[in-house]
């Protein structure tokens, strides 16, 4: 494993700059195919509305994957992630026109032994938190 971030270079409170990730209907169709989750709330507007949703919503796991990407882009090696968990607090609504934008940022919340750190993630869409208790444990160099 070759993490690009050194354990000694981060402190509790070190911030990882925010990044934005666009999501549109095509992303959700691709994600449905790749993941095998074909629930129509993720691609058919009429069905989503019929079960009380405002519109098509992103797969929770698509949003979690963007958080994962945020962490692996920071650390360099995906193999450095030893634990990753989230709670899905609010759906990401993806309109046909224009899609949606996820904004993800992170903070080093704790330093553990064995060069591991806890990264707390914040994920928002339209100002609303879409993930809570989102944390990744990564092993740094």
């Amino acid at each position: 494993m070759t993490a690009g971030v050194k354990y000694d270079d981060v402190e509790v409170g070190t911030e990882i700059p925010a990044r934005t990730y666009p999501v549109d209907r095509a992303n959700l169709v691709m994600y449905a195919g790749a993941s095998g989750d074909f629930n129509p709330i993720h691609w058919r507007e009429s069905f989503a509305k019929s079960v009380g949703l405002p519109d098509v919503i992103a797969h929770g796991m698509f949003t979690m994957a963007q958080g994962g990407r945020f962490v692996t882009d920071w650390v360099g090696d995906p193999g450095a992630v030893v634990d990753y968990g989230v709670r899905f607090s609010s759906p990401v609504v993806v309109p046909d026109e224009g899609g949606a934008t996820l904004e993800i940022s992170g903070t080093v919340e704790d330093k553990l032994d064995d060069n591991k750190v806890v990264v707390a993630l914040t994920a928002r869409c339209n100002g609303q938190k879409v993930l809570t208790r989102a944390k990744a444990v990564v092993r740094l160099a």
Partner: peptide
């Protein structure tokens, strides 16, 4: 396919040499 679906271009998901370079 999965990496494409999440929009992540990281070569470690695609290129064996890049993955080997990362151990």
């Amino acid at each position: 396919e999965f990496a494409d679906a999440i929009g992540d271009p990281n070569p470690i998901y695609r290129d064996r040499e890049a993955a080997k370079a990362a151990g």
